[in-house]
Nucleic acid binder design. Structure first.
Length: 490
RNA sequence: GUCCCUAUCGUCUAGAGGCCUAGGACACUGCCUUUUCACGGCGGCGACCGGGGUUCGAAUCCCCGUGGGGACGCCA
């Protein structure tokens, strides 16, 4: 259903209104625009729709832009602010009035409301009564001395308005159901349906890719394209993201700011990967790199129905991305976004720890939590009172002897070679494994019986997911030894 | 209410008339692996909304019904 215009002509935009934080639904809309632009070698643009002066706030614009930056979706050209363009909107509207395609409406809000209520009661679609439609009022020359007017579109009374949606195909509206919508409010501020067209023309937008809550606005906008004698873009209406209650995602049912996802430890590509799979598919593939998303994206496989936001799958996908990440990059993010720091240990050591931990976490914020007792001297605060060995004192004594033997064994090697870690003394994962198995056999202990207390004390916390055999070789032996001593004393 | 869109496991989805006894993923669950937790491996549970057509043959095409969503603003 999609057409393939010359790639160089593809220009798409993400046009948020700064009336709230950038939320996940907005990110998905931006993403589909971004992917299409990148795939087609076109331009991805951003326009801030701040005509609603009441609700627009600078802090929201800042949040939207910084969130998009975090996600790696920056605009290819200068960002357009609608608040800068008031004069253009006004003069084009005046022009449409002179051509008989729009008119001044002096009706008051109360009058308009009244007819709307009446029509609703009669079971009709609430619309404007078109009182001023054929009056040709001049500015400042309204009925009953009224001077305040809005500008309305003179929408056709008959026929149909249709367009071909890239996702859904042909959509047709009877014109009788469409209103003479307001283009410029009586306070002079233009409305969304009007400025969106003026600006999309100005920006030479080739494809309008947006949420399907805009399908019903499209005929109004088509009217304006025709009135302004401009070439119409192609439209693609994306299905909505739904909350668990299957209603449009909102603050009530789980809408969350993009920033919150960042703080929780989602990777940009993990979040984007989850979002792209909400309403789009590429066979059975679930995990995509950014390059793959761009390479494979198409409108043919965009779903038509809304998709429920599934936090658990998001978590899983994020884990997949963390697994594949470069530890260096992970460390950088940890330092920048999670105030992660360490002392008395080398960068290489921290990086190796991350390598061992990254396949096991789903959220970045788990990393500093698990690392903290490994990379900061004296951070270990272990209480061994919950350990199983406390139940059988003679067993506990035997285990301590076994652990002591392991310590002595390693110690002799380390002091002979004079290196700070077991790994540098030639004792790696497999050697530790063999050593502990031997000791277990010698003292007729199951491996878990004595590695469990060892692991607790060496990691310095009960919830660190690193394997003991992975940790022992790389941890400074001095530290490991001290912690094992504490274990013996407990 | 009117208009627009829509309908495959709980959820995200594959599916373009025979490859479908409907595939994958998340979740749930059984087993295995194992140095706790986790990761991983192998299984299990689980869906074509209903009714009519069209066709030799329908999850797939058409119609109706029903369900769901969205829009009906001097919000965007």
């Amino acid at each position: 259903m999609s057409s393939s215009p010359a790639s160089s002509s593809v220009r798409v935009r993400f046009a948020p209104s700064p009336t709230g934080w950038l939320h996940i639904g907005g990110v998905r809309t931006a993403l589909f625009n971004y992917l299409f632009a990148r795939k087609m070698g076109g331009k991805f643009l951003i326009r801030i729709e701040d005509t609603d002066t009441e609700r627009s706030e600078k802090q929201y614009t800042d949040d939207i832009l910084s969130s998009l930056k975090w996600l790696g979706m920056n605009a290819d050209e200068e960002i357009l602010y609608q608040s800068d363009r008031g004069k253009i909107y006004q003069s084009m509207a005046d022009d449409l009035i002179s051509k008989g395609l729009a008119y001044r409406c002096f009706c008051t809000t109360e009058e308009v409301e009244a007819t709307r209520e009446k029509m609703t009661k009669e079971g009709k679609k609430p619309m404007y009564a078109r009182t001023c439609r054929e009056k040709n009022y001049a500015a400042g020359a309204g009925p009953n001395g009224r001077t305040s007017f809005a500008i309305r579109a003179k929408f056709p009374l008959q026929g149909t308005t249709a367009f071909t949606d890239m996702i859904r195909g042909e959509i047709t509206f009877p014109n009788t159901d469409l209103d003479d919508f307001v283009m410029i409010r009586s306070n002079g501020v233009p409305t969304y349906n009007y400025v969106v067209v003026v600006d999309d023309i100005e920006m030479k937008i080739s494809h309008v890719i947006r949420g399907d809550d805009h399908i019903n606005n499209t005929p109004k906008q088509i009217f304006l394209y025709e009135a302004l004698k401009a070439e119409k873009p192609l439209f693609a209406h994306l299905p909505m993201i739904l909350g668990e209650d299957k209603k449009k995602l909102s603050k009530r049912n789980g809408e969350t700011s993009t920033n919150a996802y960042r703080q929780h430890g989602f990777l940009p590509d993990g979040l984007l990967n989850f979002l792209v799979r909400l309403g789009w598919s590429h066979g059975d593939q679930e995990v995509f790199t950014r390059e793959e998303m761009i390479q494979f994206f198409d409108f043919e496989h965009v779903q038509v129905t809304g998709a429920v936001f599934n936090p658990e799958k998001l978590l899983w996908i994020n884990g997949e991305h963390i697994k594949k990440s470069n530890p260096d990059q992970l460390l950088t993010i940890l330092k920048e976004d999670f105030k992660f720091s360490y002392s008395g240990v080398s960068d290489a050591y921290v990086l190796t720890l991350i390598t061992h931990l990254q396949p096991k976490v789903k959220l970045l914020k788990e990393l500093p939590e698990q690392l903290k007792t490994l990379v900061i001297a004296g951070a270990s605060k272990v209480d061994g009172s919950d350990l199983k060995w406390n139940k059988v004192p003679e067993q506990k004594a035997k285990i301590k002897i076994a652990i002591q033997e392991f310590m002595n064994d390693c110690n002799s090697v380390v002091s002979k070679k004079g290196k700070p870690t077991l790994a540098e003394c030639g004792i790696g994962h497999d050697e530790i494994n063999a050593k502990l198995h031997d000791i277990g056999e010698k003292y007729t202990l199951k491996l878990g019986e004595f590695t469990q207390p060892m692991r607790l004390f060496v990691t310095g916390q009960p919830s660190c997911n690193i394997g003991l055999f992975d940790l022992l070789p790389i941890m400074p032996w001095e530290t490991a030894y001290a912690r094992l001593e504490a274990c013996l004393k407990s």
